[in-house]
Amino acid sequence: MMVYLLLFWVYFKVGLFGFGGGYAMISMIQYEVVEHYAWMSSQEFADVLAISQMTPGPISINSATYVGYSVGGVFGAFLATFSLCLPMLIIMYFVIRYLFTNMENHYVKNVFRFLKPATAGLIFAVGLLLMNAENFADVGLHNSNVSVAICAVSFVASYFYKVNPILLLAISGLCGYVFFGVLQ
């Protein structure tokens, strides 16, 4: 029972403070699920993100359903997704009534001016947090460091050449199979 209440509370918070889209929410989800409640290891969490990215639909909904399932079964999956969406119903109501006519308001403008760089920092931080030995399988001084190479090449491909993320994940998976499976 307790785990369902916690699941509701965690995803309600994520939905309520989820400024800046899916990736920004990931930083909150990572904090709660991996660091705070330790429902998942950092490695499992990275797997969830990869799977959420590769299946259709928003990454935040996908990861909520997935985390909910692994924490509390099918009911947990629906509960987490519902809790994530609940704040939106409330917020959207106020947005329709108030924000649309006040986007030029002095306070609203200033709040967004500070929120945007802060959420960018949130996303960067979660990237750094996932950069650990669990997710970089062969990192170390005397190793071949295939994972570091995959990360670097993917970064360049995504940042400079805007390569589709799903394609990048698929190629990286293939590289993993070749370098950690076939060639070992």
């Binding site: 990275a46 993100l49 996303i123 997710n135 199979y177």
Partner: peptide, 14 residues
């Protein structure tokens, strides 16, 4: 093995 390759890519994509 496949996910060993995918995990570093997730970091890059974030």
């Amino acid at each position: 093995q496949i996910f060993k390759g995918i995990r570093p890519c997730v970091v890059a994509l974030i």
